[in-house]
Design a protein around this nucleic acid. Sequence first.
DNA 1: GATTGTGAAACAGTTCACAGCT
DNA 2: AGCTGTGAACTGTTTCACAATC
Lengths: 256, 256
Amino acid sequence: MAAQRGEGDGVVTRPGETGPEAPADVRERARAIPEAAVARLAVYLRVLSGMVEQGVTTISSEELAGAAGVNSAKLRKDLSYIGSYGTRGVGYDVEVLVSHIERILGLTRKHSVAVVGIGNLGHALANYGGFPSRGFPVAALFDIDPDLTGVPVGGIPVDHIDDITSVCAEREVSIGVIATPPQAAQAVCDRLVSAGVQCILNFAPVVLQVPDYVEVRKVDLAVEMQILSFHVARRADEAAGDVVNGIGVDGVVIRP
Amino acid sequence: MAAQRGEGDGVVTRPGETGPEAPADVRERARAIPEAAVARLAVYLRVLSGMVEQGVTTISSEELAGAAGVNSAKLRKDLSYIGSYGTRGVGYDVEVLVSHIERILGLTRKHSVAVVGIGNLGHALANYGGFPSRGFPVAALFDIDPDLTGVPVGGIPVDHIDDITSVCAEREVSIGVIATPPQAAQAVCDRLVSAGVQCILNFAPVVLQVPDYVEVRKVDLAVEMQILSFHVARRADEAAGDVVNGIGVDGVVIRP
DNA sequence: GATTGTGAAACAGTTCACAGCT
DNA sequence: AGCTGTGAACTGTTTCACAATC
């Protein structure tokens, strides 16, 4: 069993030794894509999709980087991981880049999503238009409350949680979203995993234990809030004029 | 203007030069807390709070690390950043650790939250019990739809977005949550910033441009989905038996 | 002239491994 | 004997800066 990846940690792929007998063009692009870069590629993709709609056909690393909120060196490095083909002196062809990133992120294939826990958040997720439009159709909804089963939410009828295995198999669910209360999360997770779901997005404030081959991403609102709180506190220290040698209260070093 | 922090990047604090005239006990703890460690401290805090409820009084780094899904060396390093006092041969006193982490995260002070955009997600956030119970009372709700203003959601009446400045000042809002459609997000963000809000949690799939002194965290569901998709794709390559020298399709290096 | 692609340097974060304390 | 705290080694990420290319 392994716990899920936290934010920004872990490695996606290994800096591999390329075997001497690998063909040159494969070896050319044979490198790992850092996890951090994968997350940014998704952001670049969104920005680029917006560009396509505006009829932009070519973009420089500087422009794209600005729109994505990163610096241009990082952008170029990220694109180099996917073996991108820009044109020196000109920039990148927007459409080429879009389809390239889509391919790398596996978006050429549809990924059916199941949402478990149809409370406030589950409702919001079931109705969220951003999923289906981006190749992530919500194919199933589950709840433990028998009063909810059969009732359609966002056009999809809710199934009972006991039917997870059969329904997930039938509808080829590849991503499970856990939006249950924390007490139920681990049990739901275990069921999803035994139903063959290998990717989980967890909104419950719980550290899920899963087998190594299952990928978990978590969205933890309380943690986000507390990180912001930390920054408020840091700022308050600063404002209090309690800064000597760059050391605030508690001996925490802060920005000058 | 600076774009917001992405996941896992950036540094909270600087590895500071401690001035030679700083008192020894301050210098002792004078070190930066990495952003990644701050996020984990929030997780440790949640696990520890659960321990307190179960009546656990002492815990070893090994146990806490297991429950938090990290390894024990990382846990101990994280705790060392906050100058923790464990007892060698024994472990940590749970209550001492809880109050220590709370202080570092600035949770001894209340942080009022304003949610902007009362759609599906906004409703869910307004009703989410996890915020108030953790010291983040939802003090204001805003929407641009005049039909919503005055209507209470989760016990709080919705105000019109034009009143952001006065309402935020009056209710001492320190954290703004953006749950609007993407088109509206930047404008809402600008208004929050001019209302004096310096911490923003953004759910809109947009890269916000903010002044340097404003801290932005983002929760981007599409990006999370696409990261999971990337892992599905990697796995599919693997399963396809298309692995030679650890190189999958597209020349991306994968785990053996 | 402009812009990409990328080694190399710098930096940040994680893990190791063990000294030091209870 | 057991467990923490931490310097040192390592791994991953970002930035620099410039040769290569159009």
